[in-house]
């Protein structure tokens, strides 16, 4: 009797759950198609390989996950207590070598398979690994600031804030550091992320499928302006990039040591800014600002940047 009531209760609850689920799924189904999800539909081979790894591992794990979920529900239903129960009952049955072997060995085999894939993938997709391509990589230096990103283009001699541009047909090598707390640079459509840490240089190698504009941001919480610390990354065709280069080289602002000290101050949601040139060796000066071993400053500019004031 009690069991039947319990069964009814479960059924009633299931019904209400289903209703609630339906009601709530409406807004999800309306206008939030996933085609714009950068992780699922990436725009570069690195992100694509990372996503494929995600899908492969997910698929392999379903070998264990789906039986586990289905058997749980099945057993819970089949062996529920009720008045006239035809299901077997074996209160003393507490072990089986066969089952034990399967539940230990099958997951272990899956781990071996995924482990092999991961070993290979981790090496193949190491963010530090230069990408093979016909053309040489386009090098950019990124500096995390509160709360904006500064990009230096050694090849062009220019700099930009909160906007990254690069030729779409060349691999992109980003050298990364921070002149504030720990940050993490990510352009989800192109690939993963890596931390930016003061006094340390990290690196990421990416490549885009073709011209396009992608979102990039700091993913590591860093304080009040964190939510607005994002930027657009433009992979540009040759002509567009030449035009962009023209625009930036013609900019009125120059990122000398003094301008950098100003830029370094905390600010939220900065507009895009361009600098026609930047202080010599700016990136290495920012790196050595926090280096554990310090010596005399190599220049007045270095001293200004490292001390924040003269």
């Amino acid at each position: 009797m009690e069991a039947r009531i319990a069964g009814q209760r479960v059924r009633a609850a299931l019904r209400s759950a289903a209703t609630a689920g339906l009601i709530c799924s409406v807004p999800v189904l309306q206008g939030c198609a996933l085609s714009d999800a950068p992780v699922l539909f990436p725009k570069g081979p690195i992100a694509l390989a990372e996503r494929d790894l995600l899908f492969t591992a997910f698929g392999i794990m379903m070998i264990v996950a789906i039986p586990a979920i289905l058997l749980t529900l099945l057993f819970a239903w089949r062996y529920r207590k009720r008045t006239r129960n035809t299901a077997d009952y074996a209160p003393e049955w507490d072990g089986s070598w066969g089952i034990e072997a399967v539940v230990w060995l099958v997951p272990a085999a899956i781990v071996v398979v995924i482990g092999t894939i991961v070993w290979d993938a981790t090496h193949r997709l190491d963010p530090y690994k230069p990408l093979a391509a016909d053309k040489p990589a386009f090098k950019v230096q990124a500096v995390a600031l509160d709360w904006k990103w500064l990009f230096l283009y050694p090849e062009l001699g220019t700099a930009s804030v909160n906007e990254l541009a690069f030729p779409a047909d060349r691999p992109l090598t980003i050298e990364i550091t921070s002149d504030t707390v720990m940050n993490s640079l990510m352009i989800p459509a192109l690939g993963g992320q890596i931390y930016a840490m003061a006094g340390m240089r990290s690196e990421m190698n990416l490549i885009a499928d073709g011209p396009g504009t992608f979102n990039g941001r700091n993913t590591m919480y860093s304080g009040d302006g964190f939510s607005d610390q994002h930027f657009k990354a433009h992979a540009m065709s040759e002509a567009d990039f030449a035009a962009w280069k023209e625009k930036v080289t013609g900019a009125a602002d120059v990122l000398d040591a003094k301008a950098y000290v100003d830029l370094h101050k905390q600010s939220v949601a900065d507009p895009v800014r361009y600098y026609s040139s930047f202080e010599t060796d700016l990136f290495s000066i920012i790196l050595r600002k926090y280096a554990p071993i310090v010596g005399p400053y190599e220049s007045k500019a270095a001293e200004l940047i490292c001390r924040g004031a003269v």
Binding site: A68, L71, T72, F75, A76, Y79, P91, V103, P107, G115
Partner: peptide
Amino acid sequence: GIATMIIAVPTGVKIFDWLFTMYKGRIEF
């Protein structure tokens, strides 16, 4: 990464052991 995945094995075993405890039982909700 691989060490982390290895933990999934004993964890999975536990799930299956509970599953087979339910098997041929008289489950009260």
